Simulated assay, not measured.
Amino acid sequence: MLRARDAMDRRFAEALDVPALARIAHVSPAHFIRTFRATFGETPHRYLQRRRVERAMALLVSTDRSVTDICMAVGFTSLGTFSRTFREIVGESPKAYRGAHPRVDHVPTHFAMAWTRPSSFGEGRGRRSE
């Protein structure tokens, strides 16, 4: 499970699917989904979405790139899906998030990402998020 999660952390902007991640973990896709959720508290799909949103949050406050450009750079293929997912995880739209947070050019990206990382606690538990 750790190998698959590490692969998602490294390659979050790539198109990753459950069968490929299950192969990395050396288990079947169904077993991978069940075990990943039991181990990390969220589905592989939701984990990958959250990682992408975390990276988008850092880019929104450290660059002047457009929201659409950031959406594509972090691995989303639809601006609508990106905006909806961003709002579900962060609680506000990407544009509102950028406006509410000052630019942080002087802060290393890994510090900014850790500081602004959204919590997976309190999200609609019991709701299917795929």
Rank of each mutant, 00 (worst) to 15 (best):
A38T: 11
E92F: 00
S93T: 06
E54H: 06
E42Q: 11
F36H: 09
K95Q: 13
M72R: 13
D105A: 10
D69H: 10
L48V: 04
R98C: 06
G91Y: 14
P44E: 01
L48T: 02
V61G: 13
G41Y: 08
V107A: 06
S78K: 10
C71D: 11
A38Y: 08
V90N: 05
T81P: 03
S66L: 04
R52M: 03
R46N: 11
T39C: 03
E92D: 08
V90K: 02
L59Y: 14
R51V: 14
A96M: 01
V104E: 13
Q49C: 09
G80A: 14
F36Y: 10
V74R: 03
P44C: 00
R37T: 12
W115E: 15
F86G: 00
G91L: 12
H110T: 03
Y47P: 02
D64E: 13
L59Q: 12
T35I: 08
E88H: 02
A38L: 13
T109N: 05
E92M: 12
F86N: 00
P44D: 04
P102I: 03
T63D: 05
F32G: 00
S78F: 12
M113G: 07
R50S: 08
I70G: 10
Y97A: 05
R84W: 03
H106P: 02
P94R: 12
E88R: 01
D69G: 12
R87W: 02
T77K: 07
D69K: 08
S66A: 13
I33G: 05
F86V: 01
T63Y: 04
F111Y: 13
S83T: 10
P94G: 11
S66F: 04
H101A: 09
A112T: 14
S66T: 14
G75P: 03
T109M: 14
R87F: 03
V67R: 09
A96F: 00
S62T: 14
R84M: 00
I89D: 04
V104K: 15
G80Y: 09
P102Q: 08
L79M: 12
R37F: 04
P108M: 10
L48W: 00
V104M: 15
K95E: 13
M57V: 14
R34D: 10
Q49F: 06
C71P: 11
T39P: 00
R98L: 02
T85D: 11
G41V: 08
F82R: 02
S78T: 06
T77Q: 10
H110R: 05
V74E: 08
R52E: 00
M57P: 09
L79K: 15
R98K: 03
F40S: 00
W115D: 15
T35K: 14
R87I: 01
I33F: 09
F111N: 11
R50L: 07
H45E: 14
F82L: 02
R50I: 06
V104G: 14
I89A: 05
R37N: 05
R37D: 07
H106N: 10
